[in-house]
Design a protein around this nucleic acid. Sequence first.
DNA 1: TTTTTATCAAGTGTCGACAATCCTATGCAG
DNA 2: CTGCATAGGATTGTCGACACTTGATAAAAA
Lengths: 261, 261
Amino acid sequence: MKKQPHCRQYDLINLKNKIINTYIVNNIVIWFFMNNLVSIKSATLSEDIAQQLINAIVQGHIPQGSKISEPELAKQYGVSRGPLREAIVKLEGLGLVTRTANVGARVIQLNIQDMQDTFTMREALEGMATRLAATTMHTDEVNSLYALLDKHQAHLDNNQDEHYLQQGGNDDFHLRIIHASGNAKLIRLLTEELYAVIRMYRRHTADKRSDPRQALREHRAILDAIANHEGDLAELLMRRHISRSCHLLKQAMEQAVLASH
Amino acid sequence: MKKQPHCRQYDLINLKNKIINTYIVNNIVIWFFMNNLVSIKSATLSEDIAQQLINAIVQGHIPQGSKISEPELAKQYGVSRGPLREAIVKLEGLGLVTRTANVGARVIQLNIQDMQDTFTMREALEGMATRLAATTMHTDEVNSLYALLDKHQAHLDNNQDEHYLQQGGNDDFHLRIIHASGNAKLIRLLTEELYAVIRMYRRHTADKRSDPRQALREHRAILDAIANHEGDLAELLMRRHISRSCHLLKQAMEQAVLASH
DNA sequence: TTTTTATCAAGTGTCGACAATCCTATGCAG
DNA sequence: CTGCATAGGATTGTCGACACTTGATAAAAA
């Protein structure tokens, strides 16, 4: 078999008269063949392992507080310890594990104090993102967000698929506002680093206390402020919204602690 | 020579009737012998290399935008490529370098947009830290900070050693407020991750426009608000203070760009 | 019994080597 | 001269092996 030719960043290559479009985004290689997705994989093993580890930790397959054994995981994922260690270093940077020299890595232990600290940071950052979005967001993007909220409303009225809002749907609104801020640093920190821990907290506490209708009302108020380009108000409302969800999560965690005794 | 016994975390060991106190803090090993500092070094090579690389980049010994060659640096620091790679992964997490698969790492290129994005994040985070500090700071800590500002005032009145304020002295005030917030996540992000890039920006732009007396006045106003436990006001003042320094830095960078043409 | 010391397997930190990929230079065809 | 294909050196990604540390167990001393 002929050796595969080079695939460069955002490159269009011609392989035996077949047009293959190759993208490399964030070190993830994506192959299109005649506009159809052919293959998608990380360019390096360590990227791959890191992503798998993040998912495993967030979803609880690797329990919180447990020790991470390098030889064991290496065997499990079928790689050597080199890429695995790189992945662990990355997880340490994300705050998902803590490492001690000559001892090893340990998955973080969730607790109320840490959760509040995290949500306080999120409050500050996402509040700022909302303020920025309010000053720069275009009318069509605002309308698109209104349509998203209408869809959420429809989901609630039909009283079906309520899980959708609790899972990804609720995040859509937040993520799109964050991206609308246009601040690359802010986007990276909130969406790549902080959200891993936040999703972990939500995953591990079945927050049935949260009221989707109340959340939707707050989302509408925030979007109204953005549509009117009222940065101050938008930031204030977003901070209150996050602070409130933090409070609810705290109650759920306290209840879980009581139930376990 | 007898083999050295184990030195565990926060351990007190007895080596041939000599009392040696061993601390391991943040993977940095510190040895005391009869209350005198004997030796201090990182527990692992990668920690050591990472710290040296951070300093080299922040102080410009490794120029911005330059490519990082693993074999070259490994030879230079006298280590193998393994620990060096771990250090580079860490630097990527700090946002000091960007990595591309199969190509390598590159020191970030400073520019005005990135600087503004960074300072906007800092504004949000340090504003929140100031708000938290205003609600929790004790009287003695407030007085200690007033003493610090008086010292700064004395430095200014003597019109000597003005460099002290520009360098570390100015940061003292900010760092102590951040620590007073009591939010561990916030402290780590601001002091360990963000400040590396911020120091890099200040280092590479001789910001002679900044007026130490004005900065000192603003510091006093912030501290007054903290002393009165006015969280809202303290946050507002800190954000304005940071926004102003961002504006000055931007002017300096624009001037530097013009001068280089 | 209690405390100290020695021993040992498991795990982590580090290294050198090989395979895969990228970048540059050279040659060739048009 | 320009554009494309190929070849080569240099760099990155990955692997297996070895030295040192750790934590626990067993032996020895008080």
